[in-house]
Design a protein around this nucleic acid. Structure first.
Ligand SMILES: [Mn+2]
Ligand SMILES: [Mn+2]
Ligand SMILES: [Zn+2]
Ligand SMILES: [Zn+2]
Lengths: 138, 138
DNA sequence: ATTATTAATGCAACAATATTGCAATTATAT
DNA sequence: ATATAATTGCAATATTGTTGCATTAATAAT
């Protein structure tokens, strides 16, 4: 279970002021250890204005606290970056898993993405989304 | 260059009635050999109502003519399915490439996605999006 | 501690994107 | 040629995302 002081440090280390909304949102992501969309946050945090939640997700993404996870639904979900991410360098060589049963999306930080070589192309970044059944749903 | 009769057959084979809008949209995708978003179609086909274009993309996707390509922008793009896709079984073991320079998104149908094994998970489908520079932009 | 500076928040308005119902039109089967 | 069923365009509505600005709050400076 993550401590208040640790959450605060994550914000500070990414040049973000410490506010209630940011602390609550970051805590929610870390405690649940999964990815959430804007809609998820809007349902969870009715006490904050929609605009504030949008801006929280945007500042987190710009400053290297969250990264966006691709999807073919048109709904962007966000995951917590590894501690080494900064506004300057995002470093995400991990896969993402989406459960077809419960809908949960998570970062698979242990497993690295296999290296891809494409003749005639210059590969700069590789995203990988695996769909299937998560351990809880099997 | 694809023939009118071939385009018509693709629609018929997927249980879709042959209409001007569907023929024009399908032709546009195949002739350009790349993926497009709804916005792209709206700009290209001003003669058709926005709603008709939405419904064209939806029916194409439901009937196995197009597949959605994941993205972290919140904008869904569509690619032409291989000829074997049907409403019952989509079969997409190919990667997608997105050029950071010209923005073009394309299906890389020749290169297969490496097989992924995840302990404790059941893998059903793998999406892979490669970002970088396309041959034209290097 | 107090004050100054700067950033975040909430609200309202707005803009962009997507969906629905329905009458008119069109494609296909008979 | 006609009947049947699906598609289209339009208007209305719903959903999602953005902007400007006054108020409030966080941090830096004193
Ligand atoms: Mn991730
Ligand atoms: Mn494809
Ligand atoms: Zn699950
Ligand atoms: Zn390019």
């Amino acid at each position: 279970m993550i401590k208040y002081s640790e959450l605060k440090n994550i914000l500070k280390q990414h040049n973000l002021r410490v506010t209630d909304c940011r602390m609550d949102v970051l805590e929610y992501f870390i405690k649940n250890n999964q990815a959430f969309s804007f809609k998820n946050l809007e349902d969870e945090f009715e006490k904050y204005d929609r605009v504030t939640l949008y801006r929280t997700l945007n500042s987190f993404t710009e400053n290297g606290v969250f990264h966006k996870i691709p999807s073919d639904t048109g709904v962007v979900t966000y995951g917590v970056c590894s501690t080494t991410c900064s506004p300057q360098s995002h470093n995400h060589n991990h896969m993402h898993f989406q459960c077809n049963c419960c809908g949960k999306i998570e970062c698979l930080a242990e497993d690295q993405i296999p290296e891809i070589k494409l003749p005639h192309y210059e590969v700069m970044e590789v995203d990988m989304i695996i769909k299937g059944m998560c351990p809880q749903c099997i």
